[in-house]
Nucleic acid binder design. Structure first.
Lengths: 337, 337
DNA sequence: CAGGATGATGGAAGCGCTTCCGATGGTTGG
DNA sequence: CCAACCATCGGAAGCGCTTCCATCATCCTG
């Protein structure tokens, strides 16, 4: 079993001291250009890689980043993670995965992790980080980047939820719908006060169209397809049901569609349905939606992390564009084609 | 910023040397029971946790396990990972995530990771590990556990793919179908020679039922809903199309259903469709399937890892049971209800 | 051309832990 | 009652790296 290649090996081969070798590799100043080159070349030839453990112990970087995510089995989070992981891996950073669901998890996470200085940065995936938590991490010298959700005063990459929601609702309005319902999903595991752009978009769009907002047309459910189905049932129970429904996400919309079919109603003949995300199954089920670039958000967040850790600037927040995708689940009202 | 609690602190408080403290915490022999107790109590009070970095550097464990997974955005892998992560986190182990897709990734992974001794164990999620790779890890003292796929001669937790497939196909046979098609999905990123139990099950079930296997009734596609749709189209193009179709997984089955609907055929009136997995959307779309306990497989794998790392035995392989779930996508042939 | 400033490098300490090697003192058996 | 043992514990040496500090060799300025 061949021994590990150490810094000392590289230094010896390059004819310098370990101290200089370390500086050369770390890109520190006060190292002659020639020396730096030589050390780097030797290191490369030996395919030397610093030991994260030793480095970290001695006060350096760990080469690891924590990724915090509330769910793993939902497509959205998986795709986000996939984009992120790829970039991070290519940047030579290891990904430490933490699923943090409820409040207890959160508390535990924020108390434990930074104290052990296991990572150089944390990426919060669709995961609101509050001010106190942010301060805690900052204090410990850990960088933060958010993807799929904004963190006040921190680099993030996300979509404009309000704009996305408006694309969806405006589409329904343009089709001529006046009685538009919303199935609003809340995540029970997340803190309640999430500023819900998608819901706000609904009210804004209706207001702009001069349509009064009727509270009974808003069904609030927990996130999920079954819950979406239930929300739709609620809407169907109204004296005057909506002719179109805007769902918080595609999974919720898919649930709504099922309820409609079971009720013998045609989509979009009797009721139009639109979601948000462009989940792979949306294409399959011919669901109109607003596409957001999920993998891309993860990848961008990854690049931001890599950039800050290599000394550069992460840049400020980025909002990626969304795009209305019209499929077969939306049409003019009363169009019993 | 309060300093980290170190082993030295614990030792001092307990009135012993760091050496003894380390042994006490590590559960080594040759430590008086009383001393061990005392040290542990003090450590607990101070909520001391060993620094993985220092421990690893000094030749101990890292407290980390690598999880290798070919995909992240598919429900199956996410669910597997969710179960695994939860158990590992509770056991105090950190999860290092590696997505390893194609052959190049694999090679890179197996060459790099173990050499840097970053982890104590690796869990391969639905990821065949070949003999050479296994040997490489073993040689470096890294434990291996597989979930959702067997690894010869290593602890694993999985389902019996052949049995699951038979449950599905037998169901179609029992309903009276004689002309049964199969949409077989292969993962382009995985090595080709995966021993496909689900496909074997098809041939076995037909043989048992005395139905000749006709090659034209087997459509092989890449994994995915769209691909499933395409496979179904192929089957529909046959002179005599099948009256029932067995799909490799629910996503594939869902694609098949879409093709059938577009073709104006009723499910199950004209064609029955069954998948495997019990994907959340299967319930939603009323798809018959064979349920497998996905999260549970991940969790079990996690427990196996935790067990081996704490010195116990992981136990041999475990096959979890699957269960036929009859929904509305399967029915007797020619039942145009 | 001298004195200080600046740049490049090596020496050495030490991060927090594990473990080898001995030292110590109590046991046991002949 | 003494030698041989053994269980228990402390001392100390690193693991591989970063960084502080000291040391020279240059280089500039006046």
């Amino acid at each position: 079993m061949d021994r590990e290649v150490t810094l000392a090996d590289v230094a010896r081969l390059a004819g310098v001291s370990p101290a200089t070798a370390s500086r050369a590799l770390g890109g520190h100043p006060h190292v002659a250009a020639g020396t730096r080159e030589r050390v780097r070349r030797i290191a490369d030839e030996l395919s030397y890689v610093v030991s994260p453990d030793a480095s970290r112990l001695a006060g350096g970087r760990t080469g690891r980043v924590a990724v915090v995510v509330p769910h793993l089995s939902r497509w959205y989070f998986g795709a986000l993670l996939e984009g992120l992981e790829e970039v991070l891996r290519e940047a030579g950073l290891d990904v430490l995965l933490y699923r943090v669901g409820d409040a207890a998890d959160r508390q535990h996470f924020f108390r434990r992790l930074p104290a052990r200085r296991k990572v150089d940065a944390v990426v919060a995936l669709a995961f609101p980080v509050d001010e106190a938590e942010r301060a805690r991490l900052e204090e410990m010298g850990v960088e933060i980047v958010a993807a799929g959700g904004q963190v006040a005063s921190h680099p993030y990459v996300s979509i404009d939820d309000v704009a996305a929601g408006r694309q969806a609702v405006d589409h329904l309005v343009h089709l001529g719908h006046r009685r538009i319902g919303m199935i609003e999903a809340v995540d029970p595991e997340q803190r309640a006060h999430q500023p819900e752009g998608r819901s706000r978009a609904y009210r804004l769009a209706l207001a702009d169209a001069g349509i009064p907002v009727e509270p009974e047309l808003v069904a609030t459910v927990e996130w999920g397809a079954d819950e979406g189905a239930e929300g739709m049932a609620r809407l169907l129970g109204l004296r005057e049901p909506p002719t179109a429904v805007y769902a918080h996400s595609d999974e919720v919309a898919l649930g709504a569609v099922r309820t409609l079919r079971r009720a013998g109603l045609r989509v979009p003949g009797d009721v139009s349905v639109i979601g948000i995300d462009d989940h792979p199954l949306a294409a399959l089920t011919d669901l109109s939606t607003v596409r957001q670039p999920v993998r891309e958000q993860g990848a961008r967040a990854g690049r931001m992390v890599a950039a800050t850790l290599s000394g550069g600037e992460a840049g400020e927040g980025v909002l990626l564009p969304t795009q209305l995708v019209i499929r077969g689940s939306t049409g003019p009202p009363g169009d019993a084609r």
